[in-house]
Design a protein around this nucleic acid. Structure first.
Lengths: 149, 149
DNA sequence: ATACTTAGTAAGATTATATGACTATACAGT
DNA sequence: ACTGTATAGTCATATAATCTTACTAAGTAT
């Protein structure tokens, strides 16, 4: 209180603008999964679901994208395999490599996550305006494309 | 390869739109700090810097916002105190509580982080267009305000 | 064929986070 | 003022997550 008249509109720090929504969505997903009965999933394991591609991905590949070591990713994948969320199959294009794939159980997790996200997006669209939300989505999408290029 | 003609523009999953830029910025900050000589900082400790307020914050408060337990936050704060990045002072308004404050060394870290972020924002503004970047910032800012309310 | 690179594993240490139980202070309602 | 409840933080302990260093095996490129 007793703050000086604001000359600037309190410019928020850039990283927080991404981090806060990320945290919010993460926590929604976590809750959603718990409600749906997936009570054995740990936050760190999300980085697998986050980075796995429909046709399957290599552990090393996912490790890079998640910015953790391949050993760490290996550990997460191994756990998820034991829990029945993923399976590993040989990569036909490279004898050294294996592809990590979602099982049906794994797909079910993705399903729940997607529903939660859809719900969050709808909620936010109500608050910001549907149009703005769409614009926001497009801009973010462009940004992500730039970052990945 | 051999994908069907895209009927939809490949709608990216919502959380990734926040997570990817967050990761990118995080890694830039990490590198920036290393270059500036702050080689003893661990990623987890960022959640302190991320959530500490200028006048100081309570550990419990920061734990909530970072979505970790107060014990975990206590551990991070303790480390940072030993390293000289923060200090703890009694909270005059509550005898049980203490305020965690940045030391000069802690402020120096923030300084570096802000510079890195400013640089990233400029870089992104070049790619997306200055105008769009500003719009993106505004929208995100609105969204964060909504989330925190 | 030889050297270099890459995918993944092994062993072991460290860092990060959580649970449950606890102390001390604060607050709220009689 | 007294009593009960809530809150800030700690202690002890367990587990999860991540890293470093070193290694094996398969691929790639001269």
């Amino acid at each position: 209180m007793s703050k000086r008249a604001k000359t600037k509109p309190e410019e928020k720090i850039l990283i927080g603008l991404f981090y806060t929504p990320y945290l919010a969505l993460n926590s929604k997903i976590y809750k959603g999964l718990e409600e749906a009965g997936f009570t054995d999933l740990r936050p760190a394991q999300f980085s697998v679901f986050q980075h796995i591609e429909p046709e399957g991905s290599r552990a090393t590949e996912m490790a890079e994208r998640a910015q953790i070591t391949k050993q760490s990713m290996g550990y997460l994948v191994e756990m998820l395999e034991k829990q029945g969320y993923v399976q590993q199959v040989p990569d036909p294009t490279d004898g050294r490599a294996r592809l990590v794939r979602l099982t049906d159980r794994g797909h079910a997790v993705n399903q729940v996550a997607e529903e939660v996200l859809q719900q969050a997006e709808t909620e936010w669209a109500k608050k910001l305006g549907k149009n703005k939300m769409q614009k926001l989505r497009n801009m973010l999408s462009n940004l992500v494309t730039e970052i990945n290029s």
